[in-house]
Design a protein around this nucleic acid. Sequence first.
DNA 1: CCAGGGATCCCCT
DNA 2: GGGGATCCCTGGC
Length: 157
Amino acid sequence: GMIVETEAYIGEEDPACHAAVGKTMRNEVMYGPPGRAYIYFIYGMYYCLNVVTEPEGYPAAVLIRALQPIAGMDKMMVLRNQKQIHQLTNGPGKLCQALNLDRSQNGEDLCGKRLFITPGITIPPQNIVVSKRIGIRVGKEFRWRYYIKENQFVSKK
DNA sequence: CCAGGGATCCCCT
DNA sequence: GGGGATCCCTGGC
């Protein structure tokens, strides 16, 4: 899939970042080297996928909030129990379900062969919308959400 | 040990 | 637009 929506969570000073409480067993992957997957369990039923960024020791990550499916939609439909393509990966929990991601991929090297990100098409800056992050209670003031303008697979306008 | 909360989703009204 | 599902993690006692 093509990543069409992301959010940044940056350091212990970001109250919405899981690292705001300091290093714990849950968030330790964020303190590790960049380029790895930080996958956490949320609301008792869902997982969220992040890409660890920044040098080792500084906890930060980019939450992948939505994908535009490119291949494997048949498998995604089974995993999601959903036939509408637009409902397969338009949310952080949904896309983890569609890609069958869970705790077992937490910490995985995203430069490997199983789960990885490749360069995609270039989106002109004027086609990228910047907004406030979604679903958080604190740290709402930071405009650290980015999504492709008018893309039909973005989770929320 | 236990209570509270959560970077969501789905279904109902 | 609102509430329930569902369970892990964390911090406090």
